[in-house]
Design a protein around this nucleic acid. Structure first.
Lengths: 335, 335
DNA sequence: AGTTTGCATGAAAACGTTTACGTTGCCGCC
DNA sequence: GGCGGCAACGTAAACGTTTTCATGCAAACT
């Protein structure tokens, strides 16, 4: 019992395949009566249109691709969640591809998605304007997430990393922690660089006499933990540490716990992202809230808009604001 | 400049489309010399075979679908990570669909994937044997994750929840915490039920005189937090609490912190899953390790095997073992 | 009444591949 | 020299849709 095709339905409903096609989509150009007959026939035969055949003639896949880095940590789970939710709401399928180590692998991933997707959502350090020109057909709608690309031919959606980091460092300083250290993310990462800049700017403005202390990290707990160990041994010890993301802040908390440093009494800690777990760690983590799921949702919505009206490719470069959320780890709410 | 088709390549290389097709796949039935000429032509034209056309004639998509619940929390990010890694290694694409609230929505998701995937990876409470019979063509390879389905026509891959929970409760009791409470997951969830059974069995065997204390939860931090508040107020207070997953254990820790209960001195805490963050919370969480990424990888590998040799559908029902990992939160490693 | 308009319907082309089948040319064998 | 076999290659059908165009027919105009 092979799957029913449009011809089977046509025979069953005693009409031509053209009418079946019309009835199944929109239904305009066909009598309500025959449309009903066709739908009943389709129901009887459990007819499901063959996706590939439709793609072939339509040149549309109703699928969007998401090119992401290694899906490690809660940030990406939230991001995908937002993307998926929005895609579902619009009846779009979601093809994900992650963990492309090198730029060559990323290029291969993009190429292999060619023709399987109507548009691309890209969040990757490896992807710059040159990459896009080299590996993508010019007419494929693309939305870049957290990307430094300023190319006017692609939409970009960024988080306001600079403002978020600036506000957090300002808050830490004004809470009395003048000596603020920073745990950075990978130097190749755009968000990481912007957050670092925000830290620098705020220090320059509000604690110009203090030295900058920047420890290298890579956005993973372990690196935050290592940085924490270093910080604990420093003399003079910083009064606060601001990690470029929450996972590293959590690793840092673990290191302080282990070395007997009390948070926030001995040292204040803050992170970035506000991943769901941030409010449940001990002590609850002060952080910069990025509405991660919303970020994914917005990105997909923007891409979907691009699909529907390609002429409207005004190459919008949007920036999502973020706000600091103060919890116990920075001491401001501890008496 | 529309995308190059196989005809363009044929013209450029001065051969027929058939030869181009042969050269691009395998390359058998064509001289090494002409094959080279064809590949060069393809390179020049930046030819990429049209995926839909290929699917149409081949009846294969080289894509597998993943049907998942709401992608909330680190468990799913790890799971998808494992699946994606394995898919990439085999050159398969990954179509994800999550957050299907009701059974009807899940059915729609499955139907809409029809014809777009060669096989399905399913992790969902809503999906039972009847659902599969009703919504899937009998010949579509499927691997079920953490599913109670015993149907011999589908492969199943489970975690050994019972043994894991049993071992953990045994460990807690033998560490001196006889009065063990349990925070359950959703009653509809298979893992949750099995873990509860493991708890019951271990209590019956090692602490038969102790009453069972089961608090309702839903696998989310907040419910663990609420359960923690309840536990803190109980008299007599349990000596240990075993949460059906790590996220609830983390919520529970937060509640104890807030109510001034010290962990593990006043109460021991254990979780299940060993999500990456478990070792970084405060105190580090004793838990049952499930190699989540491996779980995803195995599931995909099994599915891929099914694709390659459908006759080999021996409907294997595999169970992945898990082990307890002892950290500070249960007190065993605190002097 | 004749002509036009509009609408439901059907026939057939087109999308870009793969593959069954046929043709050609070459080689080796009797 | 004829013949069979084999490998390389080309022709054309097939996959299941959508869509353009033509056709018929009824209603609405002149």
């Amino acid at each position: 019992m092979a799957a029913a095709t449009i011809k089977d339905v046509a025979r069953e409903a005693k009409v031509s395949v053209a009418s079946v096609s019309r009835a199944m989509n929109g239904g305009s150009g066909v009598t309500a009566e025959t449309s009903l007959r066709i739908h009943q026939a389709a129901e009887r035969l459990q007819y499901i249109p063959h996706a590939a055949a439709r793609m072939l003639i339509t040149r549309r896949t109703r699928t969007i691709g998401a090119l992401l880095p290694d899906l490690y940590g809660e940030f990406f789970s939230e991001l995908i969640r937002g993307i998926d939710l929005a895609a579902r709401a619009r009846g779009l399928h979601l093809l994900v591809s992650s963990s492309h180590d090198g730029v060559e692998e990323a290029a291969a991933a993009v190429r292999s998605m060619q023709g399987r997707v109507d548009g691309l959502l890209i969040l990757s350090e490896r992807v710059d304007a040159a990459f896009l020109r080299a590996n993508l057909p010019r007419d494929l709608p693309v939305v870049l997430l957290n990307s430094p690309v300023k190319d006017s031919s692609h939409a970009v959606l960024n988080v306001d990393n600079h403002a978020g980091a600036f506000a957090m460092v300002k808050h830490l300083i004004q809470s009395g922690h003048k000596r603020v250290a920073f745990i950075s993310g990978p130097a190749s990462n755009f968000d990481s660089r912007q957050r670092l800049e925000g830290y620098r700017a705020a220090m320059a403005q509000y604690a110009p006499d203090m030295p900058l202390t920047v420890l290298g990290g890579d956005f993973i707990e372990e690196s935050g933990y290592q940085a924490g160990l270093q910080l604990a041994a420093m003399k003079p010890r910083p009064a606060a540490v601001f990690a470029a993301n929450d996972m590293m802040a959590v690793g840092c908390l673990a290191a302080f716990k282990e070395t007997g440093l009390r948070v926030p009494q001995d040292i204040a800690v803050a992170g970035f992202d506000d991943i769901p777990i941030a409010r449940y760690v001990n002590p609850p983590l002060t952080t910069v809230r990025v509405r991660i799921a919303d970020l994914g949702r917005s990105a997909l919505d923007q891409l979907a808009d691009l699909l529907e009206s390609p002429e409207h490719s005004s190459a919008s470069a949007q920036t999502l604001g973020c706000e600091i959320v103060v919890r116990d780890s920075c001491g401001a709410s501890v008496t």
